[in-house]
Computed example of a mutant assay.
Amino acid sequence: MEQLLELFLHNGLRPLGNLSETNELERKVNRSELTALVLLYYRGQLTMSALASGLGVPLSTTTSLVQRLVRKGLAERTQSTLDQRIMNVELTADGRELALQAKSIMENMLARVQAALSQEELEQFLVLAVKVGKALQQGNDQQASGRKDGKLRKIAIDD
């Protein structure tokens, strides 16, 4: 089941979306913020760029999202000691607590899925979920490059 959670997070899917169990958490943070907290919990300290990539959103969106988390006391931004241009984000103790609550909700959700399926069905489900995740990721990569074949093209620029 950890594989499935990682698959969701790696592909920018939101495993907490549309779950009634998250209503209490969503009084404190919105779903995007909650997803960022969970991602930071699983991956630890991340650069702003890595967090944006993990969330599948532009850096500008991540910047405002992280600013809200910092104001709420759930995350901290620190400048990299190696490169002043790089900002790192990590959870505070309150952020970890909220992320743990979200993780518990996700684990309960996945336990319900596991209970509903036989071992063979569960294995098939995981294989299919990985395939779907990869297909979605390939689609995002191709959209990012603006080409269906996924290749970049050179554009001549006149001086």
Rank of each mutant, 00 (worst) to 15 (best):
M1T: 14
M1S: 14
E2A: 10
Q3W: 00
L4V: 07
L5C: 03
E6P: 00
L7C: 02
L7R: 09
F8E: 07
F8D: 08
F8A: 03
L9A: 00
L9V: 04
H10E: 14
H10W: 04
L13Y: 09
L13A: 14
L16C: 04
N18W: 04
L19E: 11
L19M: 13
E24R: 10
E26S: 10
E26C: 06
E26V: 06
R27Y: 13
N30D: 15
R31E: 01
S32A: 10
E33M: 11
L34F: 06
L34N: 06
L34Y: 04
L34D: 03
A36V: 04
L37I: 00
L39C: 05
L40E: 05
L40C: 08
L40I: 02
R43G: 02
Q45G: 05
Q45C: 08
L46E: 03
T47G: 14
M48R: 12
M48S: 12
A50N: 08
A52M: 07
L55W: 06
G56I: 02
G56W: 04
V57E: 12
P58K: 08
L59Y: 13
T63V: 03
T63L: 09
S64T: 10
S64V: 09
L65V: 00
V66R: 05
Q67I: 01
V70F: 12
R71N: 09
K72F: 08
K72T: 00
G73C: 08
L74W: 07
L74Y: 07
L74N: 01
L74R: 06
T78P: 01
T78R: 15
Q79S: 15
T81M: 02
L82Y: 06
Q84F: 02
I86W: 12
I86M: 11
I86R: 08
I86Y: 12
N88H: 06
V89R: 08
V89Q: 12
E90Q: 14
L91I: 01
L91K: 07
T92S: 11
A93M: 01
A93Q: 13
D94H: 11
D94R: 07
D94S: 11
D94Y: 01
D94N: 13
D94T: 00
R96E: 10
E97K: 13
L98E: 11
A99T: 02
Q101C: 00
Q101L: 00
A102K: 03
A102I: 05
K103T: 04
I105H: 05
N108T: 06
M109K: 15
M109H: 10
M109I: 06
L110N: 11
R112Y: 01
V113N: 03
Q114E: 14
A116L: 09
A116G: 12
S118A: 03
Q119M: 01
E120R: 13
E121Q: 15
L122A: 09
E123C: 01
F125I: 02
L126V: 10
L126I: 13
L126H: 12
L126Y: 04
K131L: 09
V132N: 12
G133H: 08
K134W: 09
L136A: 08
Q137R: 15
S145L: 10
G146K: 10
G146M: 05
G150R: 04
G150D: 01
K151S: 11
L152E: 12
R153K: 14
R153P: 00
R153Q: 13
I155S: 10
A156N: 10
A156C: 01
D159P: 03
D159M: 07
